[in-house]
Amino acid sequence: MVEGFISRGFRGRRRQPNNAQLPPGQYETKGFPVLSAGPTPHVPLSEWDFTLVGEIDEAKRWSWEEFQALPSEEITKDIHCVTKWSKFGTRWGGVSVDTLLGNVETSAAYVTAFCDGGYTTNLPLEDVTGGKAWVAYAYDGEPLEPAHGGPARLLVPHLYFWKSAKWVRGLSLLSHDEPGFWESLGYHNYGDPWREQRYQGD
């Protein structure tokens, strides 16, 4: 913070009615902006699978059909993108990460989500368990569109949205923390929007 700086003549619109819902530095959007670093991958559902690998006794794998047969949940959450937009009350459908990890014994303390297109993001294990994270395949009652991460994306709404990796194909359970794609490029390792952890050192 540069103490005392005022933008000459700036009044602002103060058009945020849900201020308590809005983390610092964010503004509300009604749209659903698309952000990604490369072309949208298109993997046929017949070739899609979701795997758990790393520090577990036995790797786990679900085909698309098997994944659809898992118990699913309806999730309504606010989401916050590091590029400053927030969207309130987004409606998702998918499988809780608790369900996926249900029978897994692990000594891991971290996970890295890996994706089609090569994207990765890292999270503490405790941030994807306890009802805080899902693998979502539906948005607003419809199959999740490819541009928004379909067929399935990670959904970790309490962290900046780059942690909610699009086109996710699995989780690697790790004993150590390994910075992912944006986390290696100057973005914050954890990414809590309420503490405005946008960039390294925030």
């Binding site: 902006p33 698309v34 990604s36 670093a37 072309p39 949208t40 991958p41 937009w85």
Partner: peptide
């Protein structure tokens, strides 16, 4: 961005060589 990236991949370009950045009138 979506149309261009998809068309380039369709034309045979390596997706790893295509970097995208987007903006939208979101406020």
């Amino acid at each position: 961005v979506e149309a261009t990236a998809a068309a380039l991949v369709e034309l045979g370009h390596d997706p790893a060589g295509v970097k995208t950045e987007r903006f939208g009138p979101t406020g």
